[in-house]
Structure formats: C-alpha cells, structure tokens
C-alpha cells in the first residue's frame, strides 16, 4: 500500500537566496505527479526535502501521517538521483542487490530488473565498463530494487537516449499498475510529464512557487499513441505556454 505525500507551506532558503517559495501540494496515495519548471526553480530542492535530504526553512512534509525521516526509517522511500549513485567497485547486479541488502527488502530480482532495463549480458560489469546511459539505468534499477512505496525521481531519464527513455517510461507505466506507488517525478520534458503523470505541477522561475497544477485528462497507463491525442497536444501546449510565455515577460 503506497502512502500519500502532504507538502504544507514548504520553503527553503540557501543563505539569503530564496530557492523555494511557499509550496503547498497534496499527492494522493499511488498518484504520479510530475514537477516541471525552468532550471533553478527549486524542483530538486523540493524533492530532496521530501526525501529528508534537506530540511525545509519553513513548513512541513508528511508521508502518510509521519515526517519523511520516519518514512526513511521504515524503508518506504526510493530516490532516483539525476547523477548516478552507483558504487564504482560493484558489478551492476551487486549494486542492485546492495539496495536490498541495506533495506532488508527484496522487491525485485536484480537480474530480472536489469534485463527489463535492457542490461541483459551486462550484469557483471562495473560502472566504468558501461556507457553513461547504461549506468543511469543501473542507477534506476538500484533505486527501486526494494520496491519502495514512495518513489522520488530527479530527472531520472535525462541521460538516456530517446528510445530507452520511452522504453523505461513504458516499463514504469505498466509496473505501477501492478505495484502502485506514489511518485514525485522531476523532469524538463513536458511530453514525458504528460505521458507518465496523473497531474503536472508547473513551477515559476526562482524563487520557485507553483503556477498551476494540471490534471492530465486521461487515466494512466498511456502509451506513446497518446502523443497523437488532441488532449495530449492541448495539455502539453498549455504547460508550454505557462513556462515559455512567462519566461519572455521580464520580471
């Protein structure tokens, strides 16, 4: 059973700079919410606050009914970092198994997970023997190996080529039907956000605050054919207008 995320009045300052303005957001259990916005608008900061990696300056986050530290303690969280967090001395399969060893939770078979991510035949290779995209796929596999209830993903597909990006996106879409999770997903790809998410949260430039929360007008899972759907085109165009029209207006 996945847990809801409640973000109430959260802001974050780095010294005198306000990175994230007051943010309020309720994410339902098993909901997939994408965060989009210009670089430096505080999306990653918000994700790190939810992951209990950064403390908010004001406000609070609850995962279920407990703060993020409690969710960490009960091994509910999975965090996919933008830069691979793999161990350079471990083989791919051992890195995935390492997450399970630390958490004591065996969600997926490491070999199966790597195969699903197109890494069959590369299980015994270390990161230095893999390409950047392959390492990122090991990173994603390692982050979800313990089958977390809450998945926090920071531009997880940024290092992947278009084909792998779609393949793994589809894998997630179908996997979430079988094992529902609450997902917060940071991305710069508007199309990706609209294909994968239930709702898309659009952030303003720094200091980041929510401009609009857009519900995607078709239930998940959605395949690549959804790109041709007028609802997709309309939703993506609306997000683009929020982001780009605003950027052109001087503050």
């Amino acid at each position: 059973m996945s847990s809801p995320i409640s973000i109430r009045g959260v802001s974050r300052r780095y010294g005198r700079d306000l990175a994230l303005d007051i943010v309020d957001l309720e994410v339902a259990a098993s909901e997939f919410v994408a965060l989009v916005g210009p670089s430096g608008c505080g999306k990653t900061t918000l994700l790190r606050i939810v992951a209990d990696l950064v403390a908010p300056t004001t406000g609070q986050v609850l995962i279920g009914i407990a703060p993020p530290a409690e969710a960490r303690r009960t091994r509910l969280l999975g965090f996919v970092s933008q830069r691979p967090a793999v161990l350079p001395w471990k083989r791919a399969v051992d890195d995935v198994a390492f997450t399970q060893k630390i958490t004591g939770r065996r969600g997926f078979s490491p070999a199966d997970l790597l195969r699903d991510f197109g890494l069959a035949g590369h299980e015994d290779k270390r990161p230095s023997q893999l390409s950047g995209g392959m390492v990122q796929r090991v990173n994603i596999a390692s982050a979800i190996a313990h089958d977390p209830q809450v998945l926090l993903m920071d531009e997880p597909f940024a290092a992947l080529d278009e084909m792998k990006r779609e393949e793994i996106g589809e894998w997630f879409a179908s996997e979430l039907q079988v094992r529902p999770k609450t997902v917060l997903f940071v991305t710069h790809h508007i199309d990706e956000a609209v294909i994968l998410a239930d709702r898309v949260v659009v952030f303003s430039p720094a200091p980041g605050r929510i401009l609009e929360v857009i519900t995607v007008p078709k239930a998940r899972p959605r395949g690549p054919e959804f790109r041709q759907d007028p609802r997709f085109i309309e939703t993506a165009a609306h997000i683009r207008s929020l982001l780009f029209d605003r950027e052109e207006v001087p503050a």
Binding site: A51, D52, L53, R72, R73, R75, L77, G78, F79, S81, R83, P84, A85, V86, L87, W89, F98, T99, I102, T103, S142, A143, H146
Partner: peptide
C-alpha cells in the same frame, strides 16, 4: 565518497557502520 552515494545511503536509512564500511572505506 561521492555525495550522491551518501544521499543514497541516507535515503535507504543505512546505519553509520554500513555507510562507513560499504561506502566511505572503499
């Protein structure tokens, strides 16, 4: 030790000893 890997250990709620022996020492 790579800060991203240390973040991973923190999110997984690894103990001090696990982080030390499995990440920082290697």
């Amino acid at each position: 030790a790579d800060p991203v890997v240390l973040d991973r250990m923190r999110v997984l709620n690894a103990s001090w000893w696990e982080t030390f022996t499995q990440v920082q020492l290697p």
